[in-house]
């Protein structure tokens, strides 16, 4: 059994202290890192609950339930920030990315506790692959949201749309990495390549 609450406490304690003592933009970024980790913790509870209610096994839960829950939970702190604080586009873009990084970091930490830290190459590919996937989903959300943050009905449609796109990307990633061999390698490589291409070409849309 993995006590993810304990891992959460250990990882977030220094962050919480830093948020309390550090002023300015650093505090904002660390708050979103913390939000991402919290979203990951809550996602695991909700996914486990939904899997139990639907009688889904680990694979079915990973392919059909987890992408929906995780992407929705990641969007919650970002939406709260956008709706309540109405930040500038550049500020909000960084916050989406930090939430995604926080989520990926906590997920990787839980994976390490469950599966051990002995296989360097596998962990290198998985670490970058999962991190890149969450960041790419964040980029999709950023581009979609910031270019549709207009009238209320466009915002509503835009939020639903970007969420659905991010869920599909996440679902495809989970499906590929749950396979063996070339499919799994492709699964880890696709978000890395997409992330690199986004960093080079899509940055002027963020």
């Amino acid at each position: 059994m993995t006590y993810i609450e304990n891992i959460f406490i250990c990882l977030t304690a220094p962050l919480i202290i830093a948020i309390l003592v550090r002023p300015g933009k650093g505090r904002q970024m660390m708050s979103f890192l913390l939000s991402g980790m919290t979203a990951c913790l809550l996602s695991s509870y909700i996914s486990t609950f939904l899997a139990a209610v639907n009688g889904a096994d680990l694979t079915a839960a990973s392919l059909t339930i987890a992408p929906v829950v995780e992407e929705s939970m990641k969007l919650v702190p970002v939406l709260f920030y956008l709706l309540v604080f109405e930040p500038r586009r550049e500020e909000a873009s960084g916050c989406v990315t930090m939430t995604a990084i926080g989520f990926a970091t906590f997920e990787n930490a839980c994976y390490l506790i469950q599966n051990g830290a002995a296989q360097t190459l596998h962990l290198l590919i998985r670490g970058f692959g999962t991190g890149a996937m969450h960041v790419v989903c964040g980029i999709i959300v950023s581009v979609g949201l910031f270019h549709l943050w207009d009238r209320v009905w466009i915002r509503m449609a835009g939020i639903i749309g970007v969420l659905a796109v991010a869920i599909s990307f996440h679902g495809i990633f989970n499906m590929l990495v749950s396979q063996q061999g070339a499919a799994a390698t492709a699964g880890y490589l696709i978000p890395m390549i997409t992330g690199i291409l986004s960093a080079i070409f899509v940055k002027n849309l963020l």
Binding site: T64, I160, V162, A164, S168
Partner: peptide, 17 residues
């Protein structure tokens, strides 16, 4: 899995937009 239909409906929303 409702993920593909979610994605296609998102596409229809963008077409409408």
């Amino acid at each position: 899995s409702y993920i593909p239909s979610l994605s296609w409906n998102a596409a229809y929303i963008y077409q409408l937009l």
